[in-house]
Simulated scan of single mutants.
Amino acid sequence: MDILIILTPNFNIAATMGFIDPFRAANYLDGDAIFHWHFASLDGGPVPASNGASMLTDPLADHDRKFDLVLVSSSWTPERQFNAAMFSALRRHAHRGSVMGGLDTGAFLLAKAGLLKDAKATVHYEHIDAMIELFPDTEVTEDLFVFDGKRISCCGGGAAVDFALHILRQACDDRLANMAARYVFQQNLRPEGAQQNPGMIEPLGRAAPALVRDAIKLMEQHLEDPLTISDISDQLGVSPRRLDRHFEKSIGKGPATYYRDIRLDRARGLVTQTDMPLATVAVAAGFNSQAHFSKSYKSRFGLAPRDDRVQGRIPFEYRAWPMHRKVGRHDTP
């Protein structure tokens, strides 16, 4: 199996290496080079990763031939890679019949190249809202990874290992996939359809009470047209006071503050990942007043939306502002 991995500046190197390692393990364990991979970028040379490391690549033009899989590994600011040469290369590979994949935000480039029309895809959850707004003809999901015929995608992070093991399993068999999974210490292979944020159990094993989970679900369903805390309490059959106590105990902030914060988090994705007018972003996050939106945004993220549109497109390690400022429990939503 011949794999071409196209890197863009500020790609996630951990996800990219996580994707490759099961194939390396399979080659070693099988005693044969079943899988071959090549790293390329538009111009070749070293490509910086989001953590400050870099990786040497070949010019993309040097690999203008048929591959079984072409995977775009992108993370921060995928829109900066929107250019004719990249799209032309991606379309050529697709025309040759290659499976086209995206890792982390790689699906943005595939969609912009016109390769995800009426297809299903996923990206890192931080970029989901932007993907939905920019590409309405793509079915965007919050799955860890998606296999939709010759169009596949993965949200990145540790899910890249699961993603690769499913590809390995399809290309070879369960025996080799199991051996490779054991070799890289992937003890449980997450299935297709597994969610990025399943919501039931926290990674360290603690779970929020059912009441809090149900309240959060209602909040997430009403980001653009927010409910009052009294409305949420009524729907759940509890008093606002009881709901507040449960939120404070399990999350460390009241429901009003939590609700405001997730609306602002949605807004930040749209501010930093799209060129939507800020007034439109405010409405999408449930704020009727632009001034109130800007003030709340600056309180949470440390800078105004207009400034974050520039700063937020810089990888976090190089940013001058913290991603989230600490706020008090009594801040008004």
Results as ranks from 00 to 15, higher is better:
32 D>C: 12
330 H>P: 00
149 G>Y: 01
7 L>C: 06
213 R>N: 09
214 D>A: 12
17 M>P: 00
318 Y>L: 14
146 V>F: 01
290 Q>E: 05
319 R>W: 03
171 A>T: 03
161 V>F: 09
32 D>M: 13
200 M>Y: 06
297 Y>E: 06
108 F>P: 14
200 M>H: 03
321 W>M: 08
239 S>H: 11
67 F>D: 09
96 R>G: 05
264 L>G: 08
201 I>F: 09
23 F>T: 00
298 K>G: 10
183 Y>L: 06
176 L>C: 04
71 L>P: 07
333 P>E: 06
91 R>P: 05
210 A>V: 11
308 D>L: 06
77 T>R: 14
74 S>L: 13
259 Y>Q: 05
160 A>S: 15
219 M>L: 02
180 A>M: 02
216 I>H: 00
253 K>S: 13
295 K>L: 10
177 A>M: 09
117 K>E: 14
246 H>I: 07
105 T>W: 03
221 Q>E: 15
64 D>S: 14
89 A>N: 09
2 D>Q: 14
46 P>I: 01
241 R>G: 14
109 L>D: 06
299 S>P: 01
32 D>R: 14
87 F>M: 14
210 A>Y: 06
299 S>W: 07
179 M>T: 03
22 P>R: 07
161 V>Y: 04
317 E>G: 07
21 D>V: 08
309 R>C: 03
291 A>P: 00
32 D>Y: 12
266 R>Q: 07
243 L>K: 05
146 V>N: 01
140 V>W: 11
172 C>H: 07
251 I>G: 03
308 D>P: 02
215 A>G: 09
132 I>F: 00
84 A>R: 14
128 I>P: 00
273 Q>V: 01
195 Q>E: 09
73 S>G: 08
130 A>I: 02
223 L>K: 12
316 F>R: 15
216 I>F: 01
222 H>I: 02
229 I>S: 10
63 H>K: 12
280 T>Q: 15
193 G>E: 11
33 A>G: 08
296 S>D: 15
239 S>E: 14
204 L>T: 15
122 T>G: 01
245 R>F: 13
308 D>W: 07
223 L>R: 15
140 V>D: 01
277 P>I: 03
98 S>W: 02
32 D>V: 14
241 R>W: 09
169 R>H: 09
119 A>S: 09
332 T>M: 12
120 K>T: 09
119 A>M: 04
183 Y>K: 08
116 L>W: 03
297 Y>P: 02
131 M>P: 00
12 N>V: 00
37 W>F: 15
62 D>I: 00
136 P>F: 02
249 K>I: 11
156 G>F: 05
138 T>M: 00
115 L>N: 13
290 Q>D: 06
82 F>D: 12
80 R>V: 12
239 S>T: 15
13 I>M: 11
318 Y>A: 14
81 Q>D: 13
182 R>I: 10
238 V>T: 13
312 G>C: 02
61 A>S: 14
43 D>Q: 10
75 S>K: 11
233 S>D: 04
192 E>H: 04
100 M>Q: 08
187 Q>C: 09
103 L>N: 03
259 Y>H: 12
232 I>L: 10
12 N>W: 05
288 N>M: 11
130 A>W: 01
310 V>K: 13
